[in-house]
């Protein structure tokens, strides 16, 4: 069934009683989806912790190739973007959609900065012959003055690329989603009464931030 009607200027699908009924149902759906995100990333964390405890020295060697300054900057960028994302919702709640658009634009920009820094991190490693798993190139690493010490170092970078890669994909998806709600916002589709899509996208973006909050110490600091 696809019919809907207007209640207080908000379109409400006919299987919902009122605006709040629709809002709270949508919100619950969003949270359930976030649970699946947590469990999916969680699997990687579980694997990482297990192998980190099995091969602590190999993991330390791997972590030594990461530059914590890059991760640190990226953490600040993401936290700031989370903040502006929250503002994007806030300004819609208080009826200032123009400011909300700006906040969302800055959020996307931060996502882009994050990805650019990631790009430099990745290319730097590729340049040194550091690839995931079997593709790691010990000769190239030796040429760059960093001979590989543990024969299974590829596993660490398997984790590194899988975790940061999957996270990066989420950043890209998040940027796309934020752009989408930003355009809708510019078209004037949201109001203090209706901003559920921004809120949903916001929660997704905060999940991306949340995962990075743990990825940062896991990959860069606890070597």
């Amino acid at each position: 069934m696809s019919t809907s009607r207007l209640i207080n200027g908000v379109e409400v699908a006919s299987h919902f009683r009122d605006v709040h009924h629709q809002y709270s149902s949508n919100k619950e759906g969003i949270w359930l989806f976030m649970v699946t995100e947590i469990l999916m990333f969680g699997g990687l964390f579980v694997g990482y912790i297990i192998f980190h405890s099995l091969y602590p020295e190999m993991f330390a060697e791997g972590a030594s190739y990461l530059d914590w300054k890059m991760g640190f900057v990226n953490t600040l960028v993401l936290i700031f973007s989370s903040f502006t994302m929250a503002l994007g919702i806030y300004y819609n709640q208080v009826g200032q959609p123009k400011r909300a658009t700006w906040a969302l634009a800055i959020t996307v920009l931060c996502g882009a900065i994050f990805m650019v820094i990631k790009y430099f991190e990745y290319t730097h490693k590729f340049h040194m012959g550091i690839f995931p798993g079997n593709l790691i190139n010990p000769e190239m690493m030796a040429e760059h003055g960093h001979p590989m010490q543990h024969s299974n170092l590829g596993m660490y970078f398997g984790f590194y690329y899988c975790m940061s890669g999957l996270h990066g994909i989420h950043v890209l998806i998040g940027m796309g989603l934020i752009t989408w709600v930003m355009i809708r916002n510019m078209k004037g589709e949201f109001s203090p009464k209706y901003y559920t899509p921004i809120e949903g996208v916001g929660i997704f973006w905060h999940i991306v931030d949340l995962i990075w909050i743990f990825l940062f110490p896991l990959l860069y600091l606890v070597g």
Partner: peptide, 11 residues
């Protein structure tokens, strides 16, 4: 990529 997490070859 042969990331080695489930492969005994890489531990």
């Amino acid at each position: 990529f042969g990331v080695g997490i489930f492969d005994p070859k890489l531990g």
